[in-house]
Design a protein around this nucleic acid. Structure first.
Lengths: 344, 344
DNA sequence: GTGAAAGCGCTAACAG
DNA sequence: CTGTTAGCGCTTTCAC
C-alpha cells in the first residue's frame, strides 16, 4: 500500500497482472471454462463454476475486456460526442446516457467537440479507432469527411438536436419551431394580445423567435418590441434590452426571451421600473436553468430535458445492439414543456 | 449513404473493416512498416511513408487502437470517476480533464458514481477491465475492496477533493477548512464584528461552517445566528433561515452561507424586509453558481475551480505516463478564491 | 530502413 | 458440460 512517501512506481506495473490462464490453472480447468463462468455461467456446471469463482476471488482476477473485445469483435464501449458539458442540457444528457449504458454493460468514451468545427475528424478518428460498438453525437453539423467516417464505421448512430438535417442513422431531435409555436399558444391561451421578444442572435434562438412572432401575428397579436442581442446571452443584455423596449410597453405585454439569462435580466429591469409582474409584463424564458426556479419571482420557462434525450438515445442504441425491441427508424422528438411559474 | 428509409444494417457491418494488412498490401510493404508510419514516422524513409500514407488515405484506414493496445499493453485510455456532472465544479473538472488528455492522445472513459456508495466496486471492475493507463477519481471515499483493486491495477491515480484521507497515489485536494478561515478573514478585514451563518448539514458544508465560526470567535467576533438546514440547499430554505434569524440582526452583520442557493434565498428575504445590502447585511455564498453573478445585486461568493483541478490532474497523470516533468508526490491543493461582488 | 516471427489475453467454433 | 484450436489486429523483438 503506497503512501505519500512511497509512491507507486511510475511505469512498471508491480506484479504481473493475473490473467485467464492463471485462474484456469488455479482452478484446474481450461481457460475457456473460466471465460464461460464469467460470460455464460448457465453453460457451466455449478461445481466447476464454484471452483473457478473461488480462484478468481483468490487471485483478484479482473478480466481484460480489451483482449476480450478484440477477440469477440465487440468492445462494449460506446462513444459520445457533445459540444460541452457545461450546459445543463448536455450534462443531463451525458449523465443519463452514461448511466443507462453502464447498466447494460457498456462503457462510455466521452469526447467534447466544443462549438467550433476545428478538428472534428481527428476527434472522430481517435474515437472510432477504439472501435466503439455505437456512437452518440450531439449538437453540431458534420463535415462530409466526418459523415463518411461515421457511415463506414458501420455501427449504430444516434444524433441529437438538429431535426433539420437528414440523419445518418437514428435521430433524437428537438424542434425549435415547435417551441416558438408552443410558447405563442401558451400566451394566446391566456388572452394576451401584445407581445415582445428578446433573442440572442444564434441560429436556434432565432428560429424560436421567428416562429413565435409569426404565430402571434397570425393570431392577430401585436408585436410591440423585438430586440436581438449578440450571443452569448447575459443578464445585463437582458436588462438593457428591456430598458430599450420600455417606452413601447404601454399595455399588458407577454415577453418571450430566448434564454433564461435574458429573462432574468429583463425581470430585474422590470422590477427596477416598478412594472407589475405578471400583470403588466408576463415573461417566459428558455432553458430552465437553476436561476429560473431560484429567482424571486420564480419565472416561467421552457424546459428541454437533456436527461430524457439521453435515455431515449441509450434505449435506441441498446435496441440495435441487442437486437431486441422495436426498430426505431423514425426520428423521435425530445419533448419539452413549459414550466409555468410566477411570471405568467 | 443510408437515409431514413434505408437505415444502416443493424448488426452486420457493411464491408469488412480495412486493417493494417490491407494497407500494407496496397502500399507494397510489410504491416510493420505501416505501423511505423503511423507511430514512429521518423524511422521510415520519406518515400515509403508517402506510399503508405497514400494507401491509408485511399482505403480510409482507421487503425484499431484496441488491437494496438493489447499488443503494446498501453490502452491510451484513462478512466475518470466523478459523483455527477450536474454540479458545475465536476462538469468543469471533466471538461478540462477530457480536453487535456485528448490532446495528449488519451481517451477518457467517464463513469458516474452517484453520491451513494452502492456498487463502486463493480463500477471499478468495469473500468479497470478496460485496462486504462491511468485513473482519476473524485469525490467519495473508497471501500477497502475498491482501494485494493485500484492499488493492484498498478496505474497512476489522481484523487480529487478530500484532503483528509491518506491518498492512494497522487492527490489534488481541496481544503474546506481553508475556505472557512479565508471567508472569516475576508469579513474581519472589512471590519465586521457580528457574524451569522446558514449551512446545509452535509459534512463538507459543516466543516466550512465550523471553521468560519471558530475563526471569527477567535478574533473576538460575535455570532448572532447560526442556522443549519437539511441538505440539499434550496433558496426557500435560505429565505426561511434568514427570516428565522432576523430578530437577531440588530447590528451590521456578515453572513456566510454554505451554498449560493442559500445565499440567494437569504438575499431575497433580506430585500423583502428592506434590509440594506451590504450596509446592514453583508453576504458571501459558496460555489459561484451562475445565479450568483446573474442576480441583482450580484453577490460575493467562493469560487472553486473544477477546471483548474482537471488541468492539474491531467498534468500529474501525463507526467507519470510520459515519464517527463517533475515527479509530483506532494498533495496539491486546488486554489479557491473569494469573488467579491456587490453584497460585501 | 525494412521485414518475419511471435505473441498480447481473450473468445468463436468446433470437437468430444 | 468441457476442452482444443485458431485466430482477433496490432506491436514487440530480433534479424537482415
Amino acid at each position: 500500500m503506497p503512501t505519500r512517501t512511497e509512491p507507486l512506481p511510475a511505469t512498471d506495473r508491480p506484479r504481473a497482472p493475473v490473467k485467464i490462464t492463471d485462474v484456469a490453472a488455479r482452478a484446474g480447468v481450461a481457460p475457456m471454462t473460466v471465460s464461460r463462468v464469467i460470460n455464460t455461467p448457465d453453460r457451466v456446471s455449478p461445481a466447476t463454476a464454484a471452483k473457478v469463482r473461488a480462484a478468481i476471488e483468490q487471485l483478484g482476477y479482473v478480466p481484460n475486456l480489451i483482449a476480450g473485445g478484440l477477440s469477440s469483435r465487440r468492445s462494449r464501449m460506446v462513444a459520445a460526442v457533445v459540444p460541452t458539458i457545461a450546459h445543463p442540457m448536455f450534462a443531463g444528457l451525458i449523465q443519463t446516457f452514461t448511466d443507462a449504458m453502464r447498466t447494460a454493460g457498456y462503457q462510455v468514451m466521452l469526447s467534447l467537440s466544443g462549438y467550433g468545427e476545428n478538428d472534428k475528424e481527428s476527434l472522430l478518428r481517435a474515437l472510432l479507432g477504439r472501435r466503439p460498438d455505437a456512437l452518440l453525437i450531439a449538437g453540431a453539423a458534420h463535415t462530409p469527411g466526418a459523415f463518411q467516417m461515421i457511415s463506414e464505421a458501420g455501427i449504430p448512430v444516434v444524433e441529437i438536436w438538429d431535426v433539420s438535417r437528414r440523419p445518418i442513422d437514428m435521430l433524437v431531435g428537438f424542434d425549435h419551431e415547435d417551441v416558438g409555436q408552443a410558447v405563442a399558444r401558451f400566451f394566446l391561451a391566456k388572452g394576451h394580445t401584445h407581445f415582445a421578444t428578446i433573442s440572442a442572435d444564434d441560429s436556434r434562438a432565432l428560429v424560436r423567435n421567428h416562429t413565435f412572432t409569426a404565430a402571434v401575428r397570425q393570431a392577430g397579436g401585436t408585436m410591440v418590441g423585438e430586440v436581438i442581442i449578440p450571443a452569448p446571452s447575459t443578464s445585463q443584455a437582458g436588462r438593457a434590452a428591456l430598458r430599450q423596449m420600455l417606452p413601447a410597453l404601454t399595455q399588458r405585454t407577454a415577453l418571450f426571451c430566448s434564454s433564461d439569462v435574458l429573462a432574468f435580466g429583463a425581470l430585474t429591469e422590470a422590477r427596477h421600473h416598478g412594472l407589475p409582474i405578471p400583470d403588466r409584463l408576463a415573461v417566459c424564458g428558455f432553458g430552465n436553468f437553476e436561476l429560473s426556479a431560484a429567482s424571486e419571482p420564480a419565472f416561467t420557462t421552457v424546459n428541454v430535458e437533456g436527461a430524457e434525450a439521453g435515455e431515449i438515445a441509450a434505449s435506441f442504441l441498446l435496441q440495435r445492439l441487442t437486437g431486441h425491441g422495436p426498430r426505431t427508424d423514425e426520428p423521435v422528438h425530445i419533448t419539452f414543456r413549459i414550466v409555468e411559474r410566477a411570471t405568467t
